[in-house]
């Protein structure tokens, strides 16, 4: 049962109530599946390619964070992802089953690559969270004994925070 991937769509068609739920085991293999789901939702909402890429990356980082730091890579623990369209905003809620406070993960500023180079740190801490903060319009983190809930908000009227068109150099 723990390897089951569940995708549900509910709510009435329309811009104020559509909900898509994806539930995956805590395994990096399934993170790609959520990423594909994010692309499908972004295309359905008419996101620009740049905005779509921003959302895909932010969702990927949040899901990886839930798998690694929330559920501690325990494949028996699940990660739930919910896409909710509410008025002119998209909320992507990523829920894990981990314990412990996680609020300190937010707003640490840009992780230092130089520290990694100078001190041999294995990985700059908070790189994924930093990227999320740069790519989404708003972010919210809640923790309780059930786990962590990470909500990313995307304004549907915004077409990419940097306004960059997709192309290869």
């Amino acid at each position: 049962m723990s390897d089951t991937v569940v995708i549900r769509r509910s709510g009435q068609a329309g811009p104020t109530s559509e909900v898509v739920d994806i539930s995956i085991p805590s395994d990096q293999v399934f993170e790609r599946l959520v990423r594909d789901g994010a692309v499908a939702v972004a295309r359905w909402l008419g996101f620009s390619e740049e905005r779509l890429a921003d959302m895909q990356l932010a969702v990927s980082e949040a899901v990886n964070n839930a798998i690694e730091h929330g559920n501690k890579n325990d494949a028996h623990s699940r990660v739930g992802v919910r896409f909710i369209v509410r008025n002119d905003r998209l909320a992507v809620q990523v829920v894990d089953q981990g314990t412990g406070l996680a609020a300190s993960q937010l707003t640490e500023g840009r992780p230092s690559i130089q520290n990694k180079l100078d001190n041999g740190e294995e990985s700059p801490r908070g790189l994924g969270i930093y990227l999320i903060e740069q790519l989404v319009d708003d972010v919210e983190l809640q923790s309780d004994e059930q786990g962590h809930s990470f909500i990313m908000w995307f304004n549907l009227t915004t077409q990419g925070k940097e306004g960059v068109d997709e192309h290869h150099d």
Binding site: E49, I113, P124, Y130, E166, H167, H168, D169
Partner: peptide
């Protein structure tokens, strides 16, 4: 490198 990936690379320096 795509424009999006250039943006991400810039974000993390």
């Amino acid at each position: 490198v795509t424009a999006h990936h250039r943006k991400v690379f810039e974000m993390v320096d």
